[in-house]
């Protein structure tokens, strides 16, 4: 192999090493706060994250039904379809329990 090829091999190993070190570092320093979060959820008991709360029907979207997007306050314009992609089940059978 010529000189450039060898440089390339070195570069490859350096990149792979960096990649491994980076993931390992992130893995070891990651903070998940699992117990605190679980403690909190146990008390409040509501699903979903507080990242989308522009309207109340998307805050706890696992609980909301398709109709709820019409029940907003009068000055809240309906901006639902454009800001939140929402995948509702075809058959709105909440418990998804049905006999085949």
């Amino acid at each position: 192999m010529n000189k450039l090829g060898k440089y390339f091999l070195v570069l490859l190993f350096v990149l792979l090493g960096l990649f491994a070190i980076e993931t390992l570092y992130m893995y070891t320093t990651a903070k998940h706060h699992k117990t605190i979060k679980n403690e909190f959820v146990k008390i409040v008991g509501l699903p979903d994250l507080a990242i989308s709360n522009g309207a109340n029907f998307i805050r706890h979207r696992s609980y909301s039904d398709t109709f709820s997007l019409f029940s907003n306050g009068p000055e809240l314009l309906e901006y639902f379809p454009s800001t939140f992609t929402y995948n509702f089940a075809k058959k709105n059978n909440p418990a998804r329990i049905q006999t085949p």
Binding site: H33, K37, F40, L49
Partner: peptide
Amino acid sequence: ATALESND
């Protein structure tokens, strides 16, 4: 630590 769940 619970900001994602408790913010609002």
